[in-house]
């Protein structure tokens, strides 16, 4: 379940058999083996850890390998509130990730500042990095995070990875 196969196969081989573009295969492959970066900020990080633990097991969806180095990861799950002091670092880490890369804003604080509409918290991490999927909740249940990951997977498989785009 959750395998998003490329559905629109327009190209055909010379002998009439349908052919799958290599890039579509690559997109599908990328979606099924997202490597998240260990980027837990606050409470949502604990639910992210719960998602990686045995009951909810995000490894089923390919996101088993949480890499510590941004250079080795392609998904940044911003889990938690981003303070003004942390904002340049979030951007720094995002810049260090190689293309193609995606961002999930997990939780209300990462999506829009959450309950902290004040001097200290960035009102949404999309003020510093482009976000692909917003997962609301405070904190979102592990199932909600997995839903967000699956949505992202479908999007990657369908739309491709916008190679080289900011």
């Amino acid at each position: 379940m959750g395998v998003a196969m490329p559905s629109d196969a327009q190209p055909h081989r010379k002998d009439g058999a349908p052919a799958i573009l290599f890039s579509k295969l690559a997109d599908w492959g990328r979606s099924q083996s997202l490597w998240p970066m260990t980027f837990g900020l606050a409470c949502c990080a604990i639910e992210m850890m719960g998602t990686a633990a045995s009951r909810y097991d995000v490894a089923r969806f390919g996101a088993e390998v949480f890499r510590a180095s941004p250079r080795q990861s392609d998904l940044m799950i911003v889990s938690g509130r981003v303070s003004q002091k942390m904002a340049p670092i979030v951007r720094h880490l995002y810049d260090q990730m190689p293309h193609p890369k995606w961002v999930i804003a997990m939780g209300d604080c990462a999506s829009c500042g959450g309950m902290f509409n004040n001097y200290a918290i960035l009102q949404g991490v999309d003020k510093v990095v482009p976000v692909d999927v917003y997962v609301p909740g405070c904190p979102p249940r592990p199932e909600a995070l997995i839903d967000g990951i699956i949505k992202l997977q479908k999007r990657i498989a369908a739309e491709g990875s916008k190679e080289g785009e900011q």
């Binding site: 003004q84 904002a87 340049p88 951007r91 001097y119 960035l122 009102q123 510093v128």
Partner: peptide, 16 residues
């Protein structure tokens, strides 16, 4: 409290 954007909120373009 400042209204965004304010001079000491993080601005990615300026930072880059």
């Amino acid at each position: 409290p400042p209204k965004e954007p304010h001079e000491w909120s993080f601005n990615p373009e300026q930072w880059q």
